[in-house]
């Protein structure tokens, strides 16, 4: 059994590496996008789509499906790569990312892309939208869960805290929010702009049950998701400590790469690190 688990985790690590390379390639070859924000959520998405979420290309309209909402919509390249790998969308579409005529824009569109549950982009919207989906599930006595992935910088939006208060007031234990805690926003570190720490204590104070995990540790992520809900009648929060730009050394933890494209030389270094042929 242990051997099987090791194999499973190795396989997911391989998938994450493949997705990471795919994300880099599609953004660089496509119309540009948010590389580091996408790279920091790769393991989270891989674990969700391969191990956690009760969804498949055949059940995208099933009322009982789990809902995943990418509230930090600018990291959609990672979502597209995972959706393609899981068969929700055609893999060939990935090379059209951000280009004229594509359905895969720089923010995800629920009406164009199979498997996308919410059109996000403006921060602080996907989370409360997910709260609504979780509330509807409770009203109807359905078993599905709603999982929302949010940025840490996104927690600077006031709407996040309105929704946090409301979700705990409604005792939505079918709701889990993951915060991609990479400690960077567009311009600088959160600490240098408007700090949101202590993050865990803030969410606890808002009535959430909080757990922390290394957001790149596949086994650790599986363990946390398996433990959902962390407490009955409370929404669950997972603080996933991540590295923005994970996998590309010169981008890791460097704010300037938020929406910047690498030049030829940088591209070669990145491709080498990601184990892909030069673009």
């Amino acid at each position: 059994m242990e051997g099987a688990n090791v194999n499973k985790i190795d396989s997911l690590i391989d998938k994450a590496q493949y997705i990471r390379a795919t994300v880099f390639k599609m953004i660089c070859e496509g119309g540009g996008g948010h590389i580091p924000a996408s790279l920091s959520i790769v393991e989270i998405l891989v674990v969700l789509y391969y191990e956690v979420l009760n969804i498949s290309p055949e059940t995208i309209s099933d009322p009982d499906r789990d809902r995943f909402i990418l509230s930090k919509g600018h990291a959609c390249a990672a979502l597209y790569a995972v959706l393609a790998n899981c068969g929700f969308i055609d893999k060939q579409w990935l090379s059209t990312f951000g280009k004229r005529g594509t359905i895969l824009g720089g923010h995800p569109d629920m009406h164009k892309i199979p498997g996308v549950e919410a059109t996000t982009g403006a921060l602080g919207h996907g989370f409360p939208f997910g709260v609504g989906a979780a509330l509807a599930g409770k009203m109807d006595g359905r078993k599905y869960r709603v999982i929302v992935l949010m940025g840490d910088g996104e927690c600077q939006e006031g709407s996040v805290w309105e929704a946090a208060m409301f979700a705990s007031a409604m005792a939505l234990d079918n709701l889990c929010v993951i915060i991609d805690h990479n400690r960077l926003q567009a311009m600088d570190t959160l600490d240098n702009i408007v700090p949101i720490s202590p993050l865990a204590e803030k969410w606890q104070a808002f009535g959430w049950q909080v757990n922390e995990v290394d957001g790149h540790d596949i086994a650790g992520l599986i363990e946390k998701f398996t433990a959902l809900p962390f407490q009955a009648n409370k929404p669950s929060l997972i603080i996933a400590n991540t590295i923005k730009g994970k996998g590309v050394s010169f981008m890791e933890g460097v704010p300037i790469w938020h929406y910047r494209m690498p030049n030829g030389e940088e591209m070669a270094v990145a491709c080498n690190e990601l184990g892909i042929d030069p673009l």
Binding site: P63, E117, A118, H125, F127, P128, F129, G130, V131, G132, A133, A134, L135, A136, G137, M139, D140, G158, S159, E162, A163, M165, F166, A169
Partner: peptide, 21 residues
């Protein structure tokens, strides 16, 4: 009753509608 939080009321309403409400 959402309390004094209009923005949240509308986003949550949209999420409720996404599930058929």
């Amino acid at each position: 009753n959402f309390g004094i939080a209009e923005a949240n009321m509308i986003s949550v309403a949209a999420g409720l509608a996404s599930c058929g409400k």
